[in-house]
Design a protein around this nucleic acid. Structure first.
Lengths: 126, 126, 126, 126
DNA sequence: GTGGTCTAGACCACA
DNA sequence: GTGGTCTAGACCACG
């Protein structure tokens, strides 16, 4: 039994990632209030406990502050956000390179491929 | 109800992708026989119909050939494999760049980030 | 409704504290295996999830390492243990001083009281 | 079955302690009337019998006096209050030292730790 | 309303 | 066996 098709990463962690990226993209700005635990649970159709755990995770990373009785807010500490941004960038690159290596591409081919792509994108991306 | 967490891409398509990559990686070589529909269905724990559809998909791309009564085989046509390889490469790159753009990185930063990563990997990849 | 008598600190956190102190006291040494989640849950009569959370908390502090399928173990990193030791010491002192202040004692009286106690203990402690 | 988490000390005794400390802190002054048994029972959400027993305990220590038909009052005998104050101080110290010993600290370290703490507190207490 | 804790019980992955 | 995740639903404390 392998069950390759439900991504193995836990939901709370996927959710945390999504929120991180929303913050980076600027959809959520420092000081903004996140949806309440229960609301987000309904939105993404998971158990409130799971959202709770997501928020707790984000709090651990100091990306978010939870205020009992008030809500959960994006940190106003820009430095932490920058750190997270850098970390996610490295993750993304590392994952990309790993995937390309798996397909048998060399570092040089990867670099060339990227450059070619970047210099030719005018609206022909997927 | 959003259900963001079971990746939206259909299973047969995910399966096709996985097989493609196995071929590129050399785990499956031109002329190799793929597992029978029933066997693969058991292995990855999906319905045989889904595997059937996956194979049909791959046949459509001329990456595999089904020989009635014998099984399904990786094409020996190297040109087609090269084309697929190229297509997957473009997909990978495009997806990577899209992700980086979403995080607000410019093309220049992406290129620089990749180069930095490639020139510094000694064993510190994820 | 005040309910002053169920210590407000969450169970998982009390449990974590108890385990910390066991480690400091040397009842649990670096590399030792903690009881399994389920066993400890039975021992202290709480839900396994609560113990799970305790272990997770300790893992976050890097005091403990959980190895799936094997168990949870006290870290062998002595430096972390020293740090924790120092932290708990400060907590204990701070709490003591706070309590004494609440009873109206001055810093000088606290210091004198402690010295008197330490120099007179021969077996007459509580 | 251990049930470590509901502090093992009986409630009436915890309550007595709390009242003692209120008196020491000056929240309750000599001659002040304590709440009626029923009122206090409601306030702290315990059975009136428990409060009754608490008051009897305090009476035994001569810290309060019950005047039939009028209520329960803090003693005006300063000497007794001083004695209690001293006793609670010793308790506090003894408990503190015991805790530090449990963590493996020597008497010298305890004294040094306290002094360091007292001389450095500017607002950085817990 | 908000976040936080806890239980009960199920199911998963690793070994 | 081990730890880890998730759901359902209850209850708490803060405001």
């Amino acid at each position: 039994m392998t069950d390759i098709f439900q991504s193995t990463q836990p939901i709370y962690s996927q959710l945390a990632d999504r929120i991180n990226r929303k913050i980076l993209r600027g959809e959520l700005k420092p000081g903004d209030k996140l949806p309440s635990v229960r609301d987000l649970a309904l939105q993404v159709n998971v158990n409130p406990n799971t959202v709770q755990r997501t928020y707790r995770e984000l709090e651990g990373m100091e990306i978010v502050e939870s205020k009992r009785g008030q809500g959960t807010f994006v940190t106003e500490n820009q430095e932490i956000l920058n750190t997270m941004r850098e970390r996610l960038k490295q993750d993304e690159i590392s994952q990309f390179v790993k995937g390309m290596h798996e397909m048998g591409y060399t570092d040089e081919e990867i670099e060339a491929g990227l450059q070619h792509f970047l210099h030719n994108q005018k609206g022909d991306q997927a």
